[in-house]
Design a protein around this nucleic acid. Structure first.
Lengths: 182, 182
DNA sequence: ATCAGCATGTAAGGCGTTACATGATTCA
DNA sequence: TGAATCATGTAACGCCTTACATGCTGAT
């Protein structure tokens, strides 16, 4: 495989169980996996063009135009499924984390303690917000776990929940250590 | 500030408490913060050149050359400290996570269950390895926490430990859900 | 009338990685 | 002699983000 643009895999994965437009793909990413993967229109549309050219996806003739701008539906091809499977089976993964908040904490002694506490507070608020959303997802998924498909989605939701819970716990602990020793 | 190359902040942060060469900076990044931030020579050296030009750091005249190739020591300037402080004080942060493993799990139904379990196992092994290292750091830091400087480093270590512990717990849970319902 | 949401796409540019180039020293 | 470690740097290239361009529909 020449490129390892992961956005290709995200799109192939989404198309593997339903036909979608570029716009829909963006919504799926934002709605379901944005806490561990992101995608912008500026990467989605070029990826769609490229994969249509190399045969991993194809345009559907149904361009429904009852209202709104034209829509282009894509479906995955056999070659696309192979490409997706190949990626899933390769052992190499990169889990690339960039916690700017932690960077600020690490260099905390260069700033004021209050700035760091503020950064931790902001971090905690994000985590609380994300946790709330994920708990809603969890509640929706639990009654339908008998379907094998949902199980995988459920696992990512559980991951998110345990991650954010750990973060929130850390935020409290961190503030205690910083404030308690003023 | 024109650019928001975070690597600049990493370097300024490290230089803020000791003079270092580019090579040393790389080692500091790899050794202490690589679990939440990374840096390569290809980004460090250009950043050093740029910041020396714009006056945030300066070369030290001491180019000690007793063996090995020439070394270039850098120190932070007043302007560099201001730049660092400004960044710490800005409220905006981006905590950008890319868990390729989770992506594979999310699209698990496109592959074999065994592939996904393999991916989870690999993920767990990474977490265990990282956890072990961080626990060593924790043990080293605990006796010297009275110094304010070490407290911040300690907090990032605690973050890492709680994150990896949560991940390891999730790995077991995930396997149970996948295997238990074969 | 105008704003938000739907919908596709391009352009510019930044950031960062990998690989390469160079070269000295130490140790087996 | 060759490999490993120390040490600095460049070049190519790729991915992705932001901003922009376009344009329709429906609601306020």
């Amino acid at each position: 495989m020449a490129s390892d643009r992961k956005i290709d895999m995200v799109i192939l994965g989404l198309l593997s169980h339903e036909n979608l437009t570029g716009y829909d793909i963006k919504k799926r990413i934002d709605g379901g996996i944005s806490f561990f993967w992101k995608g912008s229109f500026g990467s989605i549309y070029p990826s769609l063009s490229a994969m249509e050219k190399d045969g991993r996806i194809k345009k559907l003739p149904i361009s429904n135009r009852e209202g709104g701008r034209e829509k282009i539906w894509y479906s995955i091809t056999e070659s696309g499924r192979e490409s997706l499977l190949e990626w899933i089976q390769t052992e190499k993964v990169s889990n690339d984390l960039k916690y700017e908040t932690l960077l600020k904490v690490f260099f905390g002694n260069c700033g004021n303690k209050d700035d760091i506490i503020k950064a931790i507070d902001d971090f905690e608020n994000d985590a609380l917000r994300n946790l709330q959303v994920l708990n809603v997802f969890k509640g929706r998924l639990e009654p339908i776990l008998s379907e094998e498909d949902h199980k995988y989605y459920y696992l990512t939701v559980l991951f998110g929940i345990s991650t954010y819970e750990a973060q929130i716990k850390w935020c409290k602990e961190a503030r205690d250590i910083l404030v308690g020793t003023q």
